[in-house]
């Protein structure tokens, strides 16, 4: 019986439909889980009231209340705004987010589609949101939005490079760009790549934090100087989509970092036959550990200044990433 049910998924179109349905449910779920983690941890670190007492216990009602609030907010588009561009911007940001899920390996064979250029594709599609952010900043016809959008563009392209170049180290070691191929190479090698790629891992995490425009790299939406940057004119659900994309991107960026450097769905010592079942759990554990660190950083570090941000990327991270590539290739060829 089960066999015949599963046979239906051999059809490409049925499988595609199921995958789309799955990811459409997965993204709001991830947004809620990480959003809840964020408000709970923020409350813990800053003694905020709501997330402790909303709903009576554990603050479970806080996120639901937030969701209902967004549902009933009026959708305001300023008269001066460039309406078509204003409306397209959140879509473009979410397109990049959803498309990133295609190549994340949750377990052996548990991947939406194993593209042969996996990691290259992931890094390319993640920069799509840059265009969305710039569109949001420009179309709002607001000075804060424009400055925020330009800052975001400058920041995202500066940290795109360390992100891409840090990933090259793992690609050299694995000899493949396929995401599940990189995990399999780590299983064959018997150690996660972070042991030799700790420089690459560090650069990747710093750059990922900057790509997500999270504190300490949140100059594009610095509320003390730019109100809310490129998000200033957005309200209600359109506003929510940028946050959904941010939380989902925290997940995907952490998943990519875990896959490239921490062994993905595999842990040393776990027998490979059981990976189909424990694999997703291991990956999720690693992802949430990294996401926890990102939230933790948010309440630990003060915001950078704009020129410090650019200096860090161009004078430190990019040369360091290039040196890392050279050293990795040297050891791969010579040893």
């Amino acid at each position: 019986m089960l066999e015949t049910v599963l046979d239906i998924f051999d059809n490409f179109w049925v499988a595609l439909g199921a995958k789309l349905l799955l990811v459409a449910l997965l993204i709001p779920l991830i947004g809620m889980v990480i959003g809840f983690a964020e408000i709970k941890l923020s409350a813990k670190m800053q003694a905020r009231m709501g997330p402790y007492f909303a709903g009576g216990r554990w603050g479970w009602a806080q996120l639901i209340a937030d969701g209902i609030k967004f549902f009933q907010k009026e959708d305001i588009i300023p008269d001066n705004a460039d309406r078509p561009v204003f409306k397209t911007a959140p879509m473009l940001v979410l397109v990049g987010t959803v498309a990133l899920f295609v190549v994340i390996p949750f377990g052996p064979g548990l991947i939406f589609r194993d593209l042969s250029v996996g990691i290259f594709y992931a890094l390319a599609i993640s920069s799509l949101s840059t265009i969305g952010v710039l569109m949001a900043g420009w179309s709002s016809a607001n000075k804060y939005s424009l400055i925020g959008g330009l800052r975001a563009a400058g920041q995202l392209i500066a940290y795109e490079l360390p992100l891409v170049l840090a990933a090259v180290g793992s690609v050299i070691m694995a000899g493949t760009m396929s995401m599940s191929g990189i995990v399999e190479a780590q299983i064959t090698a018997g150690y996660p790549y972070v042991i030799f790629q700790f420089v690459g891992f560090g650069i990747f995490m710093v750059a990922a934090l900057a790509e997500l425009t999270r504190i300490p790299f949140d100059m594009p939406i610095a509320e003390s100087e730019l109100v809310m940057g490129y998000l200033t004119e957005y309200s209600g659900f359109r506003f929510l989509f940028f946050f959904l994309a941010e939380f989902a991107n925290m997940f995907t960026m952490s998943a990519i970092a875990a896959t490239l450097f921490l062994g993905g769905y595999w842990l040393p010592g776990i027998p490979t036959e059981t990976l189909e079942f424990v694999g997703p759990v291991i990956l999720l554990a690693k992802v949430f550990l990294l996401a926890f660190a990102m939230i933790w950083f948010r309440w630990t570090f003060p915001r950078f200044r704009e020129d410090q941000l650019q200096t860090l990327a161009w004078k430190w991270l990019i040369p360091l990433a290039l040196a890392n590539i050279g050293a990795t290739a040297f050891f791969k060829v010579v040893l």
Partner: peptide, 18 residues
């Protein structure tokens, strides 16, 4: 095609929820 469908889902998700 999978990639294209996932990208399209990003647009559809926004439209449906709005």
């Amino acid at each position: 095609l999978t990639v294209g469908a996932f990208a399209a889902l990003g647009v559809v998700l926004v439209l449906v929820m709005l």
